[in-house]
């Protein structure tokens, strides 16, 4: 189950090309870091990999096949700001079961407490919400997870807690992870290899 991006090019409207000719592969179970200066299109590239945007040039394949456009997307993206990634009018239990219902073991591993399920998103802290976003993405067994500044807004203890859980699941399922972060130390700690967006 290799994720492969070939010759990807993208721009917004008639604007300048954000990037062109980008090649990128992730193998199952591999953890790859992605860096670039701010505004260079890291998040856009992640959105393309996860199917939120269509690339204007090039193709995304998994195991040589195009990514299915319907149903659950095998590449799941976790955003930097969880409060913007959940429906503010849904209680957490409904937010969580937007994909498949995650098993209790997963919730336990992520430190999600039963009592949080009956709360509204604005009653939880950023760290608590981000755990839900991770659980929602992992519930349906994606092949790849993209962590776009996933723990940037969180304190060091919460960051380490969430990463421990994610790494354990990734190892068990042979899931590939793409990490976007500006924190060099975190990248060194987590990634098998780090690539820069311009130099693929």
């Amino acid at each position: 189950m290799q994720l492969e991006a070939k010759n990807i090019g993208f721009r917004y409207g008639d604007g300048p090309w954000l990037f062109q000719g980008v090649n990128f592969t992730v193998k199952p179970g591999e953890i790859v870091g992605l860096t670039a200066p701010s505004g260079r299109g890291k998040t856009t590239f992640c959105r393309i990999l996860a199917g939120y945007e269509k690339p204007l040039e090039g193709s995304i394949t998994i195991e040589g096949l195009p990514v299915p456009t319907r149903g659950f997307h095998p590449v799941q993206l976790i955003f930097q700001h969880p409060e913007k990634a959940v429906n503010p009018r849904w209680k957490m239990e409904k937010v969580l079961s937007e994909g498949e219902k995650p098993d209790p073991e997963l919730l336990d591993l992520l430190g999600i407490e039963q009592e949080w399920l009956t709360r509204w998103p604005n009653e939880l802290s950023g760290g608590e919400l981000q755990r839900f976003c991770v659980a929602r993405a992992l519930g349906s067994n994606p092949h790849f997870l993209i962590a776009d500044e996933m723990t940037t807004m969180l304190d060091a203890i919460t960051q380490a807690q969430i990463w421990y859980a994610v790494l354990e699941i990734a190892k068990k399922r042979k899931m590939g992870i793409i990490i976007v972060s500006h924190e060099e130390k975190l990248m060194q700690r987590l990634c098998h290899r780090v690539v820069e967006l311009k130099s693929f």
């Binding site: 407490e113 802290s125 060091a156 203890i157 919460t158 960051q159 380490a160 130390k185």
Partner: peptide
Amino acid sequence: KALWRALPQNEFIPIPGSQ
């Protein structure tokens, strides 16, 4: 101390529980 030790450049070991 726990916060300091949980940093990726230090031990990256979290204490359990939440605030």
